[in-house]
Design a protein around this nucleic acid. Sequence first.
DNA 1: CGCATTTCCTGGAGGC
DNA 2: TGCCTCCAGGAAATGC
Length: 289
Amino acid sequence: MPELPEVETIARQLAPELTNAVLSRVLVSRDDIIHGDPRPLPGLLRGRRVDRVHRRAKRIVMDLSGGAQLVFHLGMTGTLTMTRVRAAVDNHTHLRIRIRGTDRELRFRDPRRFGGVWCLTDQPKYVGQKLGPLGPEPLELRIKQFKAILRRSRPIKPLLLDQTVVAGLGNIYSDESLHAAGVHPLTRADSLDGDAASRLLRCIKSTLRRAIRFSGTTMMDYRTPSGAKGSFRRFLRVYGREGEPCRRCRASIERIVVAGRSSFFCPQCQRRTRERGKVRRCEREKMRT
DNA sequence: CGCATTTCCTGGAGGC
DNA sequence: TGCCTCCAGGAAATGC
């Protein structure tokens, strides 16, 4: 499930091969993953040069010559890979884009089809195809901004998952950040004091940065553009560890459903009341995998 | 508007 | 081994 660290990894690995590449033949084999009218897509892309590959929230953005942008959202099971043109094509490969003058191509594959592709150009047909509104990048978030975000009565977990509030966190890194900060997922956002707010923001950033360093987390489907798995899974402290001992206090990790999503937490480290001592907070922040 | 719930989709896991 | 049901979840759509 590609979240910010996974998408960042993909963008960084695609950038060296795609930057300055010119797109040639485009093959759409399943057009309902294209937002808007898929028919003009090949003509719109062919001949454009890739100026830059970057990430915004959980989206891969390719800036193309002529002011166009090609945007990918990977949903749950989406992958973007660079392969030889003649390599065997996996099923559920929906889009292939050849690179001019090479035997390489970009492939978008997404068995579950929660992902999607947007082509944003100056062409009238595409102007209206807006992507959903996004909140700020968590890694660029400042504490003042974050405290303003927390001034709501919602539980903290669904708030962190809401892309219009903060853009890039998903289920894994929300749970991991909340555990690192010692915050229970059902805690009302506006009940966090200033201390807890800055601790949580620091933990969100350090968790994301560390996950990027290990190329993200592969539970099932996520792969880097070269097909490799992310290796952050072995550092997870709560996500997917129901019934296993907390790596900090040995208490059994629990799973509850919050806003329709699994939420893993340690009942010992993440209490709903706020009477934890400063000493334990320090220990918690120093804990490294 | 704010927030909760439902829906989309496929393959893997687990029960029997 | 095979058949069945359940489940994962990002985000848009729908409900209240």
